[in-house]
Design a protein around this nucleic acid. Structure first.
Lengths: 200, 200
DNA sequence: TCGGACTATTGAACAATGTTCAATAAAATG
DNA sequence: CATTTTATTGAACATTGTTCAATAGTCCGA
């Protein structure tokens, strides 16, 4: 078969991304393959390589969309005009809910490691920092910041920590923790951390 | 060629593990392949499958040895009889040093996800918790633990957090953090967290 | 010492992977 | 209607994990 022009290049891209997402959602990262995606959208492998540089490129774009979805998810669950410990806890909760709800796609966000030493394109980094900005905003201003860390820095410390709890929990590296839930753990973390930050 | 008996089954296993480690160290997780390992030790793929169930099994065993190495590394750098914030900071530092020094092997510890829903064998879980136990011990007893979390639980919260910082840093998801080093970040985390735990 | 039994090791085979690219068939153009 | 253009194909290649009949050494009893 030759030229068809059933879909524009961009339509094909969108279809492929959507197909990839459902494949990952159903069977996890490892079940993703070029031929599977191609099949699903009624094209062949060759076409996929007209639209994406390679599979890594496709994965990165899916990950970008996952980040977008995550921002939406958080904004839907937490009023981003709120601040304080309670808000942070709710954000953490929502983050963990997202990870559990979209397990495979969340996993792919971190399983995926580029061959080129983890250097990611700017448009992707931008999406990452959009997530961080939500946390930053919710972080209450400390009365007495003993250490020199700025709010931006503290936001990232705190969020990296929440992420760490989330990761180890989901990868089941924490089930000796005496039966505490991930939410309890993030609560412990945030409460103590903020209290310590206020106090001298 | 038929039977050779140059090496015992266990010798072959050890050789394979060592070969795998150096392949991963040099080229990262993705560069590991059965044939490469086999070649390196002067055997063929078939032999590898007499000694390991499959590649996942081999990876898991390498990871086990990486955990052993990590425990040794930590014990060499920190007197495990010490406690308190300073000790915890030093442990965190050492953990991050380990991750940086043995980047690929540390990476493999978390990139690797089993097909079977992340269920890991007992001997492996035991190695994981041996790491946690070091942290637990270093954790100072709080004067006034407001929350209900036990020391064991708190240790895991804290360590998951350190791990989160380490992960996001190494995966380069944090370089907008205003130039703070990973060690500064863990310091901020630990200091504030412990202060918050002591205070009411 | 010979010969048969045993078994450690092989390597060819299979299905599936990512990736490329000459061939081709349909649309576009004149 | 003929010609150019190009979107799409699918066969091809190298590489992957994994299996297993064939084989070539070792071992043991006669």
């Amino acid at each position: 078969m030759g030229r068809r022009s059933d879909h524009s290049r961009d339509e094909i891209r969108q279809m492929a991304l959507q197909a990839a997402e459902s494949i990952v959602t159903e069977g996890g990262y490892k079940s993703l393959s070029a031929r599977k995606v191609a099949n699903e959208i009624g094209y062949t492998v060759g076409t996929l390589y007209l639209v994406f540089d390679n599979l890594d490129d496709l994965v990165l774009q899916v990950n970008g969309r996952t980040l977008d979805l995550m921002v939406k998810w958080l904004e839907q669950r937490v009023d981003i005009r709120d601040r304080g410990a309670e808000t942070l806890c709710r954000l953490a909760s929502s983050y963990i809910d997202f990870a559990e709800q979209h397990l495979s796609r969340w996993n792919m966000l971190f399983e995926y490691v580029t061959d080129k030493g983890n250097v990611l394109p700017d448009w992707y980094e931008e999406k990452v920092s959009r997530v961080f900005r939500i946390i930053e905003y919710a972080l209450p201003v400390a009365n007495n910041p003993v250490d020199q860390a700025s709010d931006e820095q503290v936001a990232r410390v705190l969020w990296a920590s929440v992420h760490g709890i989330c990761t180890l929990r989901i990868r089941q590296r924490l089930d000796l923790a005496g039966g505490q839930t991930t939410k309890q753990m993030t609560h412990t973390l945030i409460e103590n951390f903020l209290r310590g930050r206020q106090a001298t």
